[in-house]
Amino acid sequence: MILRVDNASYSYGGKENVFEDISFFLKKGETLCILGPNGIGKSTLLKCLGNVLKLSEGSVFIEGKDISSMSRTEIAQKIGYVPQSDQSVFPFSILDFVMLGRAPHLPFFSSPGEKDLTIAENAINKVGISHLRDRPVTEVSGGERQLALIARALAQEPEILLLDEPTSHLDFGNQVRVLNLIERLASQGTSVIMSTHFPDHGFIGSKKVAIMLENDFIDQGTAEEVITKENMALAYGVDVTIDHVSSIQRNVCLPL
């Protein structure tokens, strides 16, 4: 078990809890897909797992170790976090930008060397934006920027990858490519937690799925168990149909 979350709660500045008492675990190479309506706290949960925000109650364990006993650098070596969007002010080249992912692996007063450069370039190739390597990150499209963010997290070489709506700015082709990339990473042993607005993403690959509603997970399990007509109606208030499509050998979830 690589990640365990026990009774996690979070509130912004002591106000009402965004989420309460969430518990789950993740094995090596597993992918967890978090579904839920807008504003329910999926992003906040991911930020807490990525140690960007601190849980008000509960604990997160990586490989059995409580993250509150680990340094920021140690945590960042294990967990990579990809925010929904990036607000860089300065026009770093994509390569320089991705190279920043090496920060947790470098001593305080040093800067990246050849090895880090190779890792960064591999990460850029993996997300398929090697043609943008020298372009300023502030001048590429939102989707390309999202891919650069994913590349930066890959350069971090984490064991757990947290992705906050990784496909939200991407075109159809890149959505598929990123989902395939996630599947490939998982098969190579990286554990992934992603939030998404497309229930269908849960069926791609063999994913665990959790539905977040009213500050808790109302259901979690395999995609087939969790993505049901009833749950979708409950979470989104829309009727869906779930069918097996034999040509792609998986279930699909489509609105009625």
């Binding site: 930020k47 990525g50 140690n51 920021r72 945590i75 070596q77 860089s88 920060a103």
Partner: peptide, 10 residues
């Protein structure tokens, strides 16, 4: 990059 991203990078 901003506080949140910097924190996530350790």
């Amino acid at each position: 990059l901003g506080e949140e991203e910097a924190r996530s990078l350790g």
